[in-house]
Amino acid sequence: MGITAAITAKGVTKKFGDFIAVDHVDFELFDNEVVGVIGPNGAGKTTFINLITGLYMPDEGALYAHGREITGLKPEVRVGMGIARTFQLVHVFDNLSVFENLGLSYYRRLEKKGVPAGIFLATMNRKDIQEHVLDTLRLLELESLKDELVGNLPLGSKKKLELAMAFMSDPRVLMLDEPFSGLGDTEIAEVTDVLKRYIRERTVLIIEHKLSRLTEIVEKLAVMHEGKIIACGDCDETLNHPEVRRVYWKIENKE
């Protein structure tokens, strides 16, 4: 048996009515690879992530994580298998403190079975939760906001928090859906910085529609267009791919 990919997609298709959002996509993400997926809006990038993480179920095709089929599994089960994600529109818990947000994420990693009785006994003051959350807060330079209510934070901090929550769960595979969307230049620099520190020796898939921000992070690049992956490989190789030049370069040049 050869190397099993962390994520394998075989002929995955998703339709919304007549619109084919993802069209027979074959894709492999190997361990310790950082891959960026770019493409114009509506190319099916987010739908693709949603299919891998279980928000949508594919109409056709199959998905595997480290060789095990995950096609019909619920999102929470896939998370249990080590597939974590973030959302394009930031998803955090506004009514909890920064600490509690991270604590929840860390707790889940300890208890692999969903909801055991421990969920009632464990409090956020537990030593290991305290230590790990504080470590992560330090990594992201969010320590000063520890007890702040998340609803009061600016968007940039929320984005960083959501990343931190994903890191906390120590996933085998991490999917980031447009981690830079809605951020200003300084905040983008900060997030890039955090990502660079984190992604060494990890398996990450990043979606962006602007190429410029990805090149310094990713090792491999895939381009999606009209629901299909039209090229995948080293950054330079992909960008010089004739079809990519035709459909994507134009858009990138405009910016």
Binding site: T53, L55, K74, P75, E76, V79, G80, A84, R85, F87, H91, V92, F93, D94, N95, L96, E100, N101, L104, S105, R108, G114, V115, M165, S169
Partner: peptide, 15 residues
Amino acid sequence: KALKVNERKMRFLGF
């Protein structure tokens, strides 16, 4: 409390 404001995120944290 987390569930009340964002059930989807809870599921994607694996709960």
